[in-house]
Design a protein around this nucleic acid. Structure first.
Lengths: 183, 183
DNA sequence: CCGCTCATGTAACTGGTTACATGATTTA
DNA sequence: TAAATCATGTAACCAGTTACATGAGCGG
């Protein structure tokens, strides 16, 4: 295992934080995750689990839910070490400016007429507000749980969302007072 | 052209904002861009430019730099409309929480011992500080330019970086006072 | 004239995605 | 008993990447 991908690291992390579970459960975790850009597609998860089993980061154990039997996966000692080594050295690219489709589009807002610019900015605000609201709810739900790190994760998501929202608001305000940009 | 990809939209946008230029120049623009998660790889740009030429969003024009001749690409009427239609309807996923490798790792920080947690958080702070500094510089450089939208773009990047930085600082602070999280 | 940048491309790979297929078990 | 969920997979695709190859013009 040269270097774990982001998805591989995340899978090990889930196995570490939530304990042994089926590939299906891992998949569901990604699908229901509000934040993640991973879809939890079967085509990604099942081969991945097979792969990390083969190299011994994870161990298959037979489990059953009622009458239904299935295979759960458990983090091994090696897997736990691999997780730690995946987390800890912060690479430069991890701190880099993230991809933001709204920001990308703002660069080219000058190609639109004033009405369309307004429409874009207000739509963006509305969507961001909805995300902020949902994330705030998540944070408050998690706050009562025992998993502080997960709460911090949600707080991070919230902080970024709010920053984006205030930034869009600033553009709207400046447009209202100064008028449009160039080009 | 069913729907433009992010890269396709961005290429049209560059052609709109910076005028006709060679595929190589577009490539360089991405490579030197501080933010973008696109590498500007030849294997992406050249086929892409060919594709959008074929469907008439862009028009090839012969140009020369000194004795060196090359092909520049110019936005067509159709291309400009395609750009506008790519920008304007804000889809839900555009406002979603972005991918952040630092945040992902924070979720699993409980798997590390206290020293390693500290190391991670301080490394993250250092890298984020460096990014913030560079982005601040960029913003102030752009502020004197005529391209207001580009300046807003950089400001957006800065806002998000600062939010991430303050979030990491908050974790460090809370760790210093309360002690560690669970698990 | 030698190395750098400009300029254009292609082949193999990567790390995921969608969509499909299948079947057992549980729940309404 | 029908529909939903649990569970496991595979095949085709996608939008990018890295790495390689090639050649011309330009500046020291």
């Amino acid at each position: 295992m040269s270097d774990l991908s982001e998805l591989e690291g995340a899978v090990l992390g889930i196995l570490w934080s939530d304990g042994p579970q089926t590939a299906y459960a891992i998949r569901t975790r990604f699908r229901k995750s509000p934040s993640s850009h991973f879809s939890g597609s079967a085509g990604a998860i099942y081969p991945l689990v097979e792969r990390i089993t083969k190299v011994g980061l994870v161990k298959a154990v037979a489990t059953s839910r009622g009458k239904r039997s299935s295979t759960s996966y458990e983090l091994t000692e090696n897997g736990c070490m691999a997780l730690q080594n995946w987390v800890v050295p912060v690479k430069d690219w991890m701190a880099a400016v993230e991809f933001d489709p709204i920001r990308t589009r703002v660069h080219f807002l000058g190609s639109l007429d004033s009405d369309q610019q307004d429409r874009f900015l207000h739509e963006a605000m509305t969507k961001l507000e909805a995300e902020v609201k949902a994330t705030k709810k998540l944070v408050s739900e998690l706050a009562t749980s025992k998993d502080n790190w997960r709460t911090w994760g949600a707080r991070g998501a919230l902080a970024v969302l709010q920053a984006r929202m205030e930034w869009v608001r600033a553009i709207i305000d400046s447009l209202a007072t100064d008028g449009a940009g160039t080009s």
